[in-house]
Design a protein around this nucleic acid. Structure first.
Lengths: 337, 337
DNA sequence: GCACTTTGCACAACCGATTGTGCAGTCGAA
DNA sequence: TTCGACTGCACAATCGGTTGTGCAAAGTGC
């Protein structure tokens, strides 16, 4: 294992074996041989030799010389929800398609970890760094700029690099509309909806609150501060916040706008503990999870269009432009209507 | 962006600025300067200069010269369940602690993708490749051996490299015991339990079936082929399999041993469609998901001890031994008893 | 004052690829 | 026969670090 590194085959070895020069071997193996007028015969010889010996190029050496690593990086808050995990999977798939090597690091919504991961990736000379849901996107853009790497933001926008995000406001508006439609069907007298979860300081939560408020305003409903609880992205905090909220109430709100699956976990736990049924209340969740859908078929959900978002990201990677603070918004889809 | 790569600072630049030699700068910056008897004064000068200029070493170049990349890789079937995503997160965390750079690729349980990802990682000279849930672990070990990289398997065992897996048989036995205990409480006459999900050809499923059977045998219950449906790891297949299964029955089985959260999704969907309640049947799931726990508080679950498993993996990385086919089994925990 | 050790640093080779350039040999045309 | 063009390849510099080695200058002991 690590003890005795069995001397990997290099182009120098192949050159000796093929009785030619390293530069010729290199040209043949990286495809530039036609341009370099290497004869078909010699090329074939080298190619078959390389195959026979199981040669594979040292991409570190190549990267060093070419000053292009072929690596693209992504930082991610976490893996463990459908949204982020699907971002990671699509990112990898697209990278692979382009012959790029994708590397993903998860940074727990922690700005210090984000910077540290960015530092590492830049030290390995990633050509491009996609920061997803970064709490401090602009610093990361600056780091990328210094190192000459393309910076792109996803999920949360930054101001020093292009961003690809969901149209949170529209998604929230449509989710709220769907909730209100359901309530109209139930013909409840007091259509009080609680917005719960997220961080008031983050762009997405703000936009979703705006959409939530807008949809209600359009139906002549006022929205007060008490209707909105931004208790961070955490199940326990959501659960505690609900506990506190209900302390001064006698009945459930008629609906909840739950801002993320992790908050949904808290809401559901709290409902179960209180002996409520899932359908005692209309629920909409800004995020999509098939397991939640299975357990709660009437749950309304917002499914962000990760596939399109990643496509947009790669359009920027493929053709980086100068307009640096563009923000592309992708419409999400409402599930369950 | 990619257009004008702003010449990164190198040790040569710093050497000019500090009026010294590149080798001295290198020694100072990589910590070997005491050994090389560089004076404290010069070292300080170089260090502060490096900080001021925002120098960061080109790790590709370092890797090339040192013939150690500082990169460790992992391949993973998917990100989107709690088990695998937590594996990825712990892997990264442990790697970071050791100053290693972790890179994870997900390969969709597809042997060709697994090999391709391994090839890429080895071309970037990963020092170690952890293959998690690999469908073709031994080929990957061979590839690693050729390249002088340490190979370790996780979740599913291989025979040409050490493996760290869950004690599936014991976990299944204990889960089955827990299910039977619940049934005993209900005092059902026919304690029929259906085992559903997984692949009969994979080691884990086989072991879990063995544990399932053992636990039943110990209580004097026979297990027939009809009690076991290995319909792969997929929600739809599980749903269809249940459909077919119930076609020739009049009532639900009294319990189900569900082999993975993805199968659980199918089971739950099927129950909902059939108009059943979650508690019409005792359910145990070989996997853990907090959202599922929230929705179904009486669900029994097996939580694999990812933290310990990753620790074991790194013990092997830290001190690679010769006994190559060791298989370490880590006990999982039963949740919900 | 001299030999000897220690201190402090620079030189140059090297890791494994890529690529600009040069040159011998062949061929065709004048 | 001679010159130019083209073919086919090798040489050597280079990317940005690391590290074995050598050698002045300073310090020490007698």
């Amino acid at each position: 294992m690590l003890s005795e590194p069995p001397k990997r085959l290099t182009i120098y070895d192949l050159a000796r074996l093929a009785d030619t020069s390293p530069s010729t071997v290199s040209a043949v193996l990286n495809g530039s041989w036609q341009r370099r007028r290497i004869s078909q015969k010699l090329a074939d010889k080298i190619l078959s030799l390389a195959k026979a010996e199981g040669y594979s190029a040292n991409l570190q050496a190549r990267a060093l010389r070419r000053e292009r690593s072929g690596i693209i990086g992504m930082i991610l808050p976490l893996y463990d929800n459908r949204y982020f995990s699907s971002i990671a999977q699509h990112f990898e798939a697209q990278a692979r398609q382009r012959g790029l090597f994708a590397t993903v690091a998860c940074t727990n919504r922690n700005p210090e970890q984000e910077r540290e991961a960015a530092r590492m990736m830049l030290a390995y000379r990633v050509e491009c760094l996609v920061s997803t849901g970064a709490t401090d996107p602009d610093t990361i853009s600056e780091m990328c700029d210094e190192r000459g790497a393309t910076s792109i933001h996803m999920d949360l926008p930054g101001y020093k690099a292009p961003s690809v995000i969901s149209d949170n406001r529209e998604g929230a508006r449509r989710l709220t509309d769907a909730i209100l439609d359901r309530l109209a069907g139930q013909d409840t007298s007091e259509n009080d909806i609680l917005f719960i979860g997220g961080r008031r300081e983050d762009h997405n939560t703000r936009e979703r609150i705006a959409g939530f408020t807008q949809a209600r305003t359009q139906r002549g409903l006022a929205t007060s501060k008490a209707d909105i609880i931004t208790c961070d992205y955490a199940a326990n905090r959501t659960q505690n916040a609900l506990e506190a909220y209900m302390y001064q109430r006698t009945r459930l709100p008629s609906a909840m706008f739950v801002n993320s699956t992790i908050s949904l976990e808290g809401v559901v736990r709290w409902l179960q503990l209180g002996g409520y049924q899932l359908d005692d209340m209309v629920m909409g969740c800004f995020d999509w999870d098939p397991l939640a859908a299975a357990f709660h078929p009437s749950l309304l959900m917002v499914r962000q269009d990760v596939e399109v978002m990643i496509e947009r990201v790669f359009e920027i990677i493929d053709a980086p432009t100068v307009e640096t603070n563009r923000c592309i918004e992708v419409s999400p889809e409402i599930i369950g209507v």
